[in-house]
Amino acid sequence: MLNAIWVGLIVIGVVVAAARGRIDAVTQASMDSAELAVKTVIGFLGAMVFWLGLAKVAEDAGLVQALARWMRPLLGRLFPGIPRDHPALGAITMNISANLLGLGSAATPFGLKAMQHLQDINPRKDTASDHMVTFLVLNTSGATLIPAFIIGLRAQYGSANPAEIMVTVLAATFASTVVGLTLDAVLRRRGKRGAA
């Protein structure tokens, strides 16, 4: 699916650009985007190094495991079959906590770490496991309690009450997460049946 979308975006882009006589824009856009991509990674490189360093301290001190134990009732339901003390649960816990607090720069390192641990227990290394898809759904539907960045921007544009969108954001996030998790559960079973 990702393969088809990736090729599709590029080929459609090139064809449309050619048809509109804008073919030179393609070259420019690809160079600019590649540069922007590297800048983006460099942009979160510092946060990544820093947060995973701090997280390792928290892990060695037993804090991550304590937090994971706290969230076990919820995580056990979302990710059945991950062993109780597997480090994947700790990383998932940290990722969810960082997302809820609106610390996007901290959520990404923990998310990548969690994927690595999930890959360790994935029987087919080139295919996403059920746990991975569920974890991805949680991250793409992006549950945030405090959208601090957007509130700041609204204040900058002179909003009378910049934080008023917190309620609507919560409602929308809740809806997209519930729809995502439900559809995930339905399609997961269908895929299994088709394969069996």
Partner: peptide, 29 residues
């Protein structure tokens, strides 16, 4: 504020561990 950048998260997270088949992740996202 209420959703994240689905394709970016998908390609970054799956890519970092070498997953090629994403199964139902794209339609669900």
């Amino acid at each position: 504020a209420s959703t994240d950048t689905t394709f970016y998260v998908l390609s970054l997270y799956f890519g970092s561990v070498g997953i090629l088949s994403t199964r139902h992740a794209v339609p669900v996202g």
